[in-house]
Structure formats: C-alpha cells, structure tokens
Simulated assay, not measured.
Amino acid sequence: MRVVVQRCREAQVNVAGEMVGAIGPGLMLLVGVTHEDTEQDAAYLAEKIAGLRIFEDEAGKMNLAVTEIVGEILSVSQFTLYGDCRKGRRPNFMAAARPETAEPLYERFNELLRAKGLTVETGVFGAEMDVELTNWGPVTLIVDSPGGES
C-alpha cells in the first residue's frame, strides 16, 4: 500500500457537486493499493500514520502526531498512485489492485485509524472526486507499507 500524507489546515472532498467529507486541521491521505497488499499492510500504515510526528510542538519542532493534536483525517482512495510513467506518455496502472481487492483493504485501513480514536472522513471509492485542501507547511510525505513497494 502507498499513502500520500499531507498535513492540512482543512480539506474536503466532493462527488457530483456534493460534499461527502470534510475535516479541519489534520491529515489528508491519498491511499493506493497494489496486488500483493494484505491486511498487515493496512495495519502497518494505520499505525505508522497515526504516529507520524509531523505537527509542531510549543518549541516549533515537528514532534506531535495527529492523535496528539486531536486532528482529523480525510482519506481518499487513489489507484493512480501506482501509475507507472517510465515508458511512453500514458501511465500504466497494472500495479494498481482491482477494485474488489483494493476497496476492502482501503476500508480496513480507515477502520484501523478509527480504532485509534481518530475521526476519519472519506471520499467515495471509485467515484470521480474533487478534492480541496489547504496544505499546512507545506508538509507532504509518501509512506509505503513493507509489502506495497512497487
């Protein structure tokens, strides 16, 4: 699994002109799943992301996790994270898992974040979405699970 993590002041996702998820300060996550991913990958990433110390403490150091600032999460499925652009001009998405594999792992990942006490808003799996955010910093990281590196 691969997650693009963006520290944000606010974020929202709209489907067909209707807002389906919105958060205040926290993390905007774009989540991709590849063929070999398992529930262990989802658990690894939920643990890693919940504990990422990328929020500033009183001294201005990145020392606090989203759980410590009582931040929220907006999680959006993103199969294009596994797009391969090395050949030609059209990305190849062969490394992205099929929806019947990806959706349950994406949902499980979100459940595991909620189990850590986090508020998790989501987009709509497989839908065309408009995502807005105010990136804070900016801080953007790419986090791969051990089995999801492609």
Rank of each mutant, 00 (worst) to 15 (best):
S150L: 13
R86G: 04
R7D: 02
H35M: 01
R90S: 11
G123Q: 06
K87I: 13
M28H: 09
L133D: 01
Q40A: 15
G21L: 08
G117R: 10
L29C: 06
A42H: 03
V76Q: 04
V5W: 02
E58P: 01
Y44L: 03
Q40G: 14
L105E: 02
I49S: 07
I69L: 10
S75F: 03
I69V: 15
E111A: 12
N135G: 10
R98S: 13
L64V: 00
A22M: 06
G17F: 02
H35L: 06
F125L: 03
V120E: 02
K48L: 12
G88D: 14
A42R: 04
G147P: 07
L27D: 00
V5R: 11
G123H: 08
A16I: 02
M19I: 07
A59S: 10
N92F: 09
V15N: 03
D144N: 15
G148F: 02
P146K: 12
A22W: 00
A59T: 10
R114E: 07
A22P: 00
G26A: 09
I49F: 04
A97F: 11
R7S: 03
T140I: 13
G126A: 11
L81D: 08
I49M: 07
E103N: 08
E47Y: 06
L133N: 05
L81T: 08
E107C: 11
T67M: 13
R9I: 09
T134L: 15
R89T: 05
D57K: 12
I73Y: 03
Y44H: 06
V4H: 05
G32F: 07
F125W: 03
R90P: 05
V124D: 00
T34V: 04
E68Y: 04
I49G: 03
E149H: 10
D57A: 04
A102T: 11
E100R: 08
E128R: 12
Q78D: 01
N135F: 06
L105W: 09
T134V: 15
I142K: 05
A59P: 00
M62G: 01
G148C: 08
E18T: 13
S150K: 12
I54E: 01
S145R: 08
R90K: 15
L30A: 11
I69R: 13
G32A: 04
E132H: 13
F109N: 03
V66E: 07
I73A: 09
E128Y: 05
N92H: 14
G71L: 04
E68P: 08
D57E: 10
E132T: 11
Y44A: 02
M94C: 01
Q6V: 05
K61T: 02
E39H: 08
A102P: 13
Y82Q: 06
E128P: 03
M1V: 05
K87L: 14
E121C: 08
G126R: 12
V33L: 09
F125E: 05
L112Q: 10
S77N: 10
A16Q: 12
V13D: 00
C8D: 00
P25D: 06
A59E: 13
S77Q: 05
V131H: 13
D130Q: 13
Q40F: 00
N14P: 00
